[in-house]
């Protein structure tokens, strides 16, 4: 592992970007497959094959293209491109804040895609997606702030190689981040805007009008996004790569477990609790850090 770490360190920026662009969908898809399998087992079912997300994606690419208007797909393409871009920035070791803003840009395109089609359900989904964005955005920025306070840099490359365990300085921030990860992974209780489960009041939410290859692009974008988010979890434990990878995976499993244990919240609770929780956990942590310095 450490050797892998060294190899990665020796790579140039573009090599690392390329590695992310190529590997992330594989990792992300596999994680999604594990997610579905584990979820099924939690529910006492046998579950689909682990490679099922890939099958789904391949199938979706073979489907006929049906659209409501000409420009809906374009938003999704931009969503994917900017998600990949922000992931690539992150794994290239660039500025964490820039990654976050770029990710927000990607998210905005996703929402615009939902608005663009003018269908009631995707409209509701888009509105809820914005609410979710508002709910999680502060915490993600707080993560960057916290890391900056400890390491003195926004550079992912610097943060990842910080020798002391970041988690000891940022337990509150990490807790807050875990909280909003549930929103980002679109897991119950926070899967308001679009759920992978069938029976939702707003049908498929944002993705209602997207089908075929565009839907596959959305899925792939989520794989990229998930890898990026787990990368952020990694940063907290960057002092020990083994531990960090382990914790990232454990986090993912933990989110699945959360998914199994909750009903879907309403937006008020989603929004209120995530602002409250991040305010209590994240903000207090940051204030304590600033007092310590």
């Amino acid at each position: 592992m450490n050797t892998i770490h060294e190899i990665v360190l020796n790579w140039g920026i573009f090599e690392r970007m390329l590695a992310f662009v190529l590997l992330a969908p594989l990792v992300g898809g596999l994680l999604a497959g594990i997610d579905r399998k584990v979820s099924a087992r939690f529910q006492g079912r046998y579950g689909p094959p682990v490679l099922q997300p890939f099958y789904d994606a391949f199938k979706l690419f073979q489907k006929e293209k049906i659209i409501v208007n000409k420009f809906q797909d374009f938003n999704i393409v931009l969503f994917l491109l900017f998600t990949i871009f922000s992931g690539a920035l992150f794994f290239a070791g660039a500025d964490l804040l820039l990654t976050i803003f770029s990710l927000a840009l990607a998210g905005t395109f996703f929402v615009l895609g939902g608005f663009c089609v003018g269908s009631p359900y995707s409209h509701l989904g888009a509105e809820r997606e914005i609410i979710q964005q508002v709910a999680y955005e502060p915490m993600i920025i707080l993560v960057a702030i916290g890391m900056y306070q400890v390491t003195g840099s926004f550079k992912v490359s610097v943060i990842a190689q910080y020798e002391l365990p970041l988690i000891l300085y940022l337990p509150g921030v990490f807790a807050g981040f875990l909280y909003i990860l549930t929103i980002k992974f679109r897991k119950s209780p926070f899967d308001l805007s679009m759920s992978h489960h069938a029976h939702q009041e707003i049908v498929r939410g944002l993705t209602t009008e997207f089908s075929g290859s565009t839907l596959a692009l959305i899925e792939i974008a989520h794989w990229y996004e998930n890898v990026l988010l787990l990368g952020m979890v990694y940063l907290f434990f960057g002092f020990n790569p083994w531990l960090a990878v382990f914790v990232a995976l454990a986090t993912y499993l933990f989110e699945i477990f959360i998914d199994m244990n909750y009903a879907r919240f309403k937006w008020q609770l989603t929004f209120g609790s995530s602002w409250l929780f991040t305010a209590v956990a994240g903000v207090s942590n940051i204030i304590v850090l600033s007092l310590m310095r």
Partner: peptide, 22 residues
Amino acid sequence: LTPLYDLERFGIINTGNPKHAD
């Protein structure tokens, strides 16, 4: 779709949305 029969073993999802369905 439920535990005893579990159609998802075959990758089958109940989508509830014609645009996603096969």
